[in-house]
Computed example of a mutant assay.
Amino acid sequence: MSRESCKECCTEEFHPRNFSLSHENPQLFVTAQGGFGIAYVIYRVIWALFHVTWIILSGVIPYSWYSSESNRIKWFIYLTNWSYLILTVSAIIQAAVAISHYVKRRKHDGVSNHAMTWYLKMAWVIYNISSNAAIVVAALYWGLRIPPKLAAGGEIHYMDVGTHLGNAIYVLSDIFITATPVRIYHFLHSSLYAIVYLIFSVVYDVLKGTNAVEGSYIYPQLDWDVPGTAAIYAVLVALVAVPLVQCVLYGLYRLRLALYGCCCPRSVGEFNTESSTKQEFQLV
């Protein structure tokens, strides 16, 4: 890519309109980067079923994350589980829109529609949040939670690996398959999600809620009895880590376009330009 092209790309990316959920090529949200096909639909369905199965198992398989049977309900207080639940919802929605698009495209034989529907916008927001959260959660878990656990002689359960590493691997690999675009400004969706969770953690702490092993906090880093330390972690996650991860995801998205541009220039031209008029599909 030339210096002029790179400059043009950066200018386009940071245009104020990229705060919005508008897009001139809705087909990017229902297909793979390389184009249409039943293989992508099957791919989406398999992952949706996998994530649904895994999230159920993470709550019902007995291991050391809780201290008593009554504490199983506290599965719902953890950021990890919030984030994996959103990832699962995203996978289900992506499977649904892929199936719907595939059926409508066959039924209507390629009728064009240039509008972003409300459900594609919703799918994009949830995709943004789930992708960003998966990376942030994995980084926080392996960087902050695992070292003390191993130092204390604890063991890493395979469910922990799946929910704190498998999710990140899925997101990083999926970004090279899906045609869904990534925008830097959309870190706002994930930052808002992080802020909502932080507010929940404060309220939970004020109400004297305990974690699944009867600790007086959800996470030691978010012990609001020590507000200074908790506030520092909160700011670092919501306003530093989330935007940085969004930049990483955007970089991988641009790398995907470059790779497909080298290998399949025609498909990139048709399926990834924001101003493309070659939209052979129907979404309404």
Rank of each mutant, 00 (worst) to 15 (best):
S112M: 14
V203A: 06
E69T: 13
N81Q: 14
A96G: 10
I61K: 10
E13R: 11
N128S: 13
T11G: 08
Q27W: 03
L239R: 06
N25F: 01
I156K: 02
A48V: 04
Q221T: 10
Y219A: 09
T210R: 11
A115N: 14
S131Y: 06
I199K: 06
R183C: 03
P220K: 00
S276D: 09
M1S: 13
M1F: 06
Q27M: 06
N71L: 11
A231Y: 02
V182S: 02
Y253S: 04
W75M: 10
T117D: 06
C264N: 06
I92A: 12
V202H: 10
I56G: 12
D174M: 10
H51Q: 11
S276R: 08
G251S: 10
G143R: 00
I42P: 11
A134I: 09
A231W: 04
L207D: 07
R106E: 03
V202D: 00
E24M: 05
A96V: 15
N132S: 14
L188W: 07
L28Y: 00
S68I: 07
N25P: 02
V284N: 11
Y217P: 08
M122C: 13
Y170G: 04
T277C: 04
R3E: 00
R254N: 03
I77T: 12
A95M: 12
L87P: 05
K107V: 07
R266W: 12
P148N: 01
Y253G: 01
K121H: 10
W65F: 10
P243L: 04
W224F: 15
A230M: 13
H157V: 10
R183I: 06
T117Y: 07
W75E: 11
N18Y: 09
F281E: 07
R266V: 13
Y170D: 05
L165F: 15
R17G: 02
G251D: 03
I86C: 09
F176A: 02
L252W: 09
A134C: 15
F29G: 03
Y217W: 14
V284Q: 08
R17V: 15
D223A: 13
A179M: 07
I129F: 05
V242C: 03
Y141H: 12
V245G: 01
L144H: 01
S100F: 02
L255Y: 00
I38V: 04
S267P: 03
V89P: 13
E12Y: 04
A234M: 11
A138I: 06
P62Q: 12
Y193F: 15
V203Q: 00
I146E: 06
P148K: 00
V245D: 01
A234H: 04
F200P: 07
Y233M: 14
A123M: 11
G35Q: 00
A258P: 06
S275W: 07
V52A: 11
L255W: 01
S267D: 07
L259Y: 11
V30T: 15
T80K: 09
L85C: 14
I126M: 11
T53S: 13
N211K: 09
A212R: 12
V182Q: 07
P227N: 00
T210L: 15
W65H: 05
S201W: 00
A139L: 12
L172I: 10
E155N: 07
K7F: 08
A241T: 10
W82M: 14
F200G: 03
T88R: 10
W118I: 15
I177Q: 05
L188G: 00
D223Y: 06
